[in-house]
Each structure stands twice: as C-alpha cells, then as structure tokens.
Nucleic acid binder design. Structure first.
Lengths: 221, 221
DNA sequence: ATAAAAATTTAGACAAATCTAAAAATTTAT
DNA sequence: ATAAATTTTTAGATTTGTCTAAATTTTTAT
C-alpha cells in the first residue's frame, strides 16, 4: 500500500503541528493553513487517512497520527532532511534556497536511494537547520545542545543548527560567515542588552544581538 | 505554464519513439504500450497536449512534438540522464538499478537544482548508458564513437556507453568489471565467431562474444 | 474494390484531490 | 444559559488522468 504525494504531506504536517502541541490534537483549520488548502478539503482528506488507519480522527475533535502514520511521517522527514544536507553541502545551495527543493525530493520513496544518500553524506545526524535526522527506524539522535545565550564567557562549541528558519535570518548568517559546523567561542556579554561578541573559527570576531544568539544552537566542546 | 508529471512523461516517450522513426509520427498504440496505459487514455491526452501546443496531432494520423514540446522533452531527458550519472557515480548504484529511480527524479524541475547537479558531476556529456546529455538549451554533444567490433587489434579506447540496456546484460558487464569510463585494449579477434579478447584497465584480460562487443560503445584514444 | 482486421476515437464512468456555499457542531462571551 | 461567533463538516461541482465498451476510421487481404 503506497501513499500519494499529498497524503505524505498531510502526515508530515500533522506530525509537525502535533509536536508543537506536545502531541495534542491538530485542528482542521491549522492543517488547512499549513497545507495551503481549505478546511473542507482537509475534512475530506482526514476521513480518507482515517480509513487507512494513518490517523486517529474524531469529527470536530482534531486529529493525531497513529503509529503507522507516524512511521510514514518520519520517513518523509528523514528524506527531507537528508536532501537538505545534500543540497547545502554537495550542491552549495544557500540555507534559504534549500527548503523548497527538498519539499519535492522528499517524496521520492526508493529505500535504496535514501540509504545510499545517507551513506554518501556520511550519516549526518542533523540537517542544515540543526534539526535532527531520524534513522531508518524512525529514531532521533540524542540531542543535547544549547542556544548561544546559555554559554559562559570563554566557553566554546560548534554551531549545530538554528531554531529560527526565516529566510532573511538565514541569509544574514551566511553573510557574516556563520555556517553549520563552524566553531564559536564566547568572548563577552554586554549586560545591558544581552548582545554578545563571539569568535568564529578562531579567526573573526563578531557582535550578535540577543535576538540572533538565542536562535543559534550550540553543541559544547 | 507548468506541465504535470504525466504530461512530461508523454512528451518524453513521444520524443524517444519519434526518434526511432527518424522523426516520423508516433502511433497511439505504441504510446499506450510505452506509457503502460490504454489507447483511449492516450487519445484523451493527445488532445490536451495538442491544445497546449506541445504536439502536432491529427486524429488517426499519429503525433509528433512541436518545437515547444521538444524543448520540454529534452529538459526531462537532460534531468533523467544527469540523475543517472549521479546515482551511478556518487551513490554507487549498479547500472541496472539506476533507471527506475531516475524516472522519478527527472520530474523535479528546479532549474537551479539541475544546473548545480550538472556542475557537481563535472558537466558529464554522456550518461551511464552512453546516451548523450543535452545541454541547458537542448543541444546534444557531438558523438563520435564506435562499437567494439570496429576496433583493430591493438587499438585502445574508453568505454563510453552501451547500446543494449537489458538489465541482465548490464549486470553481466558489472560482474566482469566493465564500468563506464574504463579503458579497453583489443588483444585479439577470433575469426570463426568474431569473439574477442580485451584488456580492461591495463589489468585484466577478458573474452567477449560478438553479441556483447557490438553493444559496447568506445571512444578511441 | 470491398470485406475483414486492426487501430483509433468517442461516450460515459470513476477515483483523487480540490473548491464554494450551506449546514451543523463547538466554543465564547455576555 | 443561551445567543453570537467560530470552527468544522457535508453537499454538490470541478479538474486530471484513467478506464471499458461501443463506434468510427484506416489498413490489409483477397
């Protein structure tokens, strides 16, 4: 039993929205907004996904993924994130260009393709946005990282990702030379506005506002 | 104006079939067979493609591509062949595994993706089957190669492709170590059955039947 | 040249995914 | 607690690509 492009997208969106709600029921309207469609279309689709045992759906009561639905959603997410790594690291896409293309590539389902790609990329555990990549069986790597505002002066770490995915933010990072995997040392903290100074790759010093630094995810050395 | 996955497939198939006929009209039945659908469905689709000015279509008289249709077909073929190179060279797919996955990847239309991929692969001019890869504007590279039966004893060349794409044939080649780009020197020819002996990569000697050697495309050194 | 065979097209249906408009259920605010 | 507002679902259409069965056109064989 295969799933259409569209079904996969619904499952993926339900996964993400439900996660934001700590596993709670996702509303029809929020789904419609994310899927760029109308609530009526969502209702129809939920009925169908429910028949296929991919979601738990009670009329008017929102929706969650079944075990099976979650497995499929995680496969799509795995593919999406692996392709993002590929586009960024191998094809030199910029952070802000990556997402839309990955939205298409994620629906190519060949198991062989996905596993070979994973190998080719060196089994990455995080995508360019710092989001964890689930493994074949849907398990996430253990994530223990901090945002930059949590570091103390002198502490050092590696930039593992970002928690804000706004294109202009990503462009800004690229411009100042903050790339995934670069090393960061915290030079100083300005108490009055919580802005900070960092050293990137042991080379360049930079000031960052609190707004920026709180969206940078760091793995401590 | 974008074209659906399905439309792209029809255009691609019409291109290939028409080429076999030296540019002649393609019949509804042959299209149906290649597209694994029914003649009635083909008729419907041809009407639609004709309205979109992608094909020249006269009822009962077969179909050819318009200039516009050909441009689109060549884009799909370009993408297909570039992905085949990627799968073979980067992900270590075997020759016989490549095609089906490329059939899916070929419909992802991001121009940026295609051009970055081309660059990443080093601007290959031929795919793993030896078929030429059209450039961005739809032009084919000049092809001047020979099949292995045309060489004289002592002549050497590079394996550029194959003219037979049967999976068992491709598997056989992989098994004896004949890969795209390997060097071949013609050792001797057996007059009675035209079988030959070659040296692969200046290392290993191998016998090949006439059947096999006539399907190997060689670029002379 | 014409009848039989083959190829192609039309007619009418169907499934997937969507939409608008109207109805029904739920939530919110007084 | 109940009326108003909001959310969700149903009803009925639409589009895309497909199908079967019947009708039509073209080709082939005598």
């Amino acid at each position: 039993m295969t799933n259409s492009f569209t079904e996969e997208n619904y499952l993926k969106i339900i996964y993400h929205l439900s996660k934001e709600l700590d596993g709670g029921e996702v509303s029809t309207n929020s789904l419609a907004e994310m899927a760029k469609t109308k609530a009526a279309s969502v209702s129809d689709m939920l009925k169908k996904l429910s028949e296929k045992k991919l979601v738990n759906y009670q009329k008017y009561q929102g929706v969650t993924l079944t075990k099976l639905g979650q497995t499929i959603a995680l496969k799509v997410i795995r593919r999406h994130r692996l392709w993002e790594v590929f586009l960024l690291e191998k094809l030199n896409f910029t952070w802000d260009e990556v997402h839309n293309v990955a939205e298409e590539l994620e629906h190519i389902s060949s198991e062989k393709l996905v596993e070979k790609l994973d190998e080719f990329l060196g089994f990455p555990r995080f995508d360019p946005h710092g989001d964890p990549i689930p493994d074949q069986s849907g398990k996430f790597p253990s994530t223990i990282y901090h945002n930059l505002t949590e570091l103390k002066i002198g502490q050092a770490g590696i930039l593992m990702g970002v928690s804000e995915h706004n294109p202009s933010f990503l462009k800004f990072l690229a411009k100042i030379g903050l790339t995934l995997g670069c090393s960061i040392v915290l030079n100083e903290i300005n108490e009055f506005d919580h802005s900070i100074s960092i050293k990137i790759n042991n080379e360049i010093d930079h000031f960052l506002s609190y707004e920026v630094s709180k969206n940078l995810l760091i793995k401590l050395n």
